[in-house]
Amino acid sequence: MPQFFANKKLIVLLVGIIFLVAIISYTLSNRTNPSFAEGAVKDTVGFGQGIMAKPANFISGILDDIDALLSTYEENKRLKAQLDDFALVRVQLDEVKMENERLAALIDKEESLLQYDPVYATVIARNPDQWEEKIIVNKGARQGIEKNMAVMTADGLIGKVVVVTPSTAEIELLFSNNPNYRISAKAKGDKDVFGLIEGFDAERSEMLMKRIDSSFKVEPGQKVVSSGLGGIFPQGLLIGEITEIGTDDYGLTQMAYVKPAANFALLDQVVIAKRKMTQINGSDGDGSMNDLTHPEEAEGEAQ
């Protein structure tokens, strides 16, 4: 034993390992609220990263352009076919919008779940180890970003904000397998069918939409959008399309595979949606197990 204590290096190593394990387990359990020092480091590195990301964004922009150029001919053909429809739909939409405004004014309804303020942000870094699907953008608390806001690209929803510092924000993508990551969604059909997006099937590269009431009928091909009932996301952000229906773990509810609408490679510009309606912390929010057992908050999901 005395010999053991005489080996100073070994002692230092052991103490170091114990210290590290302690820090790891502490930070693992308390991951979402960065301390002041963490925030400062994040902002500093974020500043450097923002400068370094410019050339990368430029290159990925060029790659996008080339990609767009290559598919121009086919896209043009397809779009021409849609153009005739478009004019018609446009007129109808205007009509419906006007009517909607008139009716909303009639009942003094000023805000709806659909409305949001977009905040445009540039991606400055993506975790190089790519295990947790996270990206970091150059807008933070100073620009009014808050935790759990919805993040999307032009194609559709890509994730939500998980950590905010004064000038950066961290976004966890839909790829996540984090069990506390849920999004309240609905499948568009003749009648909306509600469910929760939770989990990701890595082998199929598709998301899982769970807890769909088995008395409702869902079909492959239906579009899935955010329902806005989770408390934080605005309503109607496109998430993806259903590809297959299955049964949930306990056979009580249905589950659907959802193919994401957005493209997750080469993300450089994103839009963070700040919803206008009051925000509450529901299933899009902290997503702790407790929240879901609170009936008044989970009401929307259960229906």
Partner: peptide, 12 residues
Amino acid sequence: IFYVDVIGLYAF
């Protein structure tokens, strides 16, 4: 601090 939010992983 910047990427992983688990302090001690890469530091070790």
